[in-house]
Amino acid sequence: MNKAETEWGDLMRAANRGDAAAYNRLLAELVPVLRSVARRGLVRAGLAVTDAEDIVQETLLAVHLKRQTWDETLPFTPWLRAVARNKLIDAMRRRGRRTFVPIDDFVDALASDAEEPVVVPAKLDEHLQNLPEGQRNVVTAISLNGASIREVATRLNMSEGAVRVAHHRGLAALASKFGIVRS
């Protein structure tokens, strides 16, 4: 717990200063934890575990888009837990559950069922198809094909700044397409 706490906090601080490698490592380390949390939540609510990866991806998008709301002087795990809980509750509500999901067993999730096979999610691809063409092309090239910003700029004959903006807007639009529940 404490190890993860310090390590994640350090990685996030480094990311806030522009260290992409640290950021990449942090996100990769969060995935098994978020996956386990999502699965447990779904099981507890009696829902299909196959949706877990959608929730993981939605949470990662929220972590990314809201990372500024983590105060560097405060511990990282409570922030992550609150973000994950918010996204889990959202997902449950969309599936018609209104139960509150406690996430106390947050970090012991790490060790347990992280190695189960991952169901490839459908939602994100669906949302991706609904993006405006420019954003879709940029997000696809960077995320799916692993192109760099510069390569995409050359290929699509755009400036690097414009690629960055389109990519960011595309990601933000993906996050919002998961839908905000108004109950």
Partner: peptide
């Protein structure tokens, strides 16, 4: 898009 792809995309947006 699998989760690794998404992480690549998010990292590029840092």
């Amino acid at each position: 898009m699998n989760t690794d792809d998404l992480i690549r995309g998010l990292t590029a947006d840092l």
